[in-house]
Design a protein around this nucleic acid. Sequence first.
DNA 1: TGAATATAGGACTATTTTAGTCCACATTCG
DNA 2: CGAATGTGGACTAAAATAGTCCTATATTCA
Lengths: 153, 153
Amino acid sequence: MLRMSKLTDYGTMVLAQLAATEGSLATCSAVAEATRLGQPTVSKLLKLLARAGLVVSERGVQGGYALARSADAISAAEIIDALEGPFAITECSAAAGTCDLESHCRVATAWQRINGSIRRSLESVSLADLQMQAEPLPPPDLKRALTKSAAAT
Amino acid sequence: MLRMSKLTDYGTMVLAQLAATEGSLATCSAVAEATRLGQPTVSKLLKLLARAGLVVSERGVQGGYALARSADAISAAEIIDALEGPFAITECSAAAGTCDLESHCRVATAWQRINGSIRRSLESVSLADLQMQAEPLPPPDLKRALTKSAAAT
DNA sequence: TGAATATAGGACTATTTTAGTCCACATTCG
DNA sequence: CGAATGTGGACTAAAATAGTCCTATATTCA
């Protein structure tokens, strides 16, 4: 229902936890305990996040995970991309030409632009913003998105 | 994947079609033909939209459907509400207190505010905007949303 | 070198959601 | 009455999601 999956939500909790212990490596178990999430689930999330380049990992006895960049430099859009695949509010908005109804569809372009607008907004929200709820930033202008030329990324 | 269901997408096509024939009643079959969607699917959509008060219906031989209001007065947010239930980007953002992890979750409030911000943006986009791609309008300011007091509606 | 600790990768299953179809009923018109 | 049209709900099939588990690989340290 226009909603992120639970995993993405959990993923932000995991990342926020890593941000809270910045400077040292945290093991999967430690993160699971701090967030009260299941360890296998946290493990899966950290693997996905590592593959996406949002966290870095060290194997072995003193190993663990850490943010790949500062919390300032990780956007909400990146987190969603990493855990949900390509950002697209509708199936049609993932890419032009995908939908065979497109020629009869009067609304595809509009949704694609709204999609792009929301995405740009999420790009401007960082992990630091998510956990601290402290700073100001620019919003998606949907009406404007509908009048401009380029469709969503 | 942070996406609307196909039905919602189809629903906007159906509504756009009704908007295009404003002033007269359109039958389910006629709408299905114009949009190239399956008739049972269109029927289901129109029933849902009627129940939500976005379209009005007349039974009987000369019956059919029409928009309950002008296309200007129907927002994208209402369409989503009608076809997907309560608007919520995360499960937690539907209502405070739903998630038993909430006390350990550093990010719930932030997502709730982002949710509210996106919703308000979608409220400012009308069906007329969706089909005409013609006018200007205000966007969600996510950063601001994170700093303000009230959470999402 | 070998044991212990961690991550890496992927297979797998159960559950939930979504999409789509169908049928029996109610209403209106001629 | 009977044909056209919406109403309501049940139902099925397909797909996505959540969550678990197993085996392999890397690192550290005694």
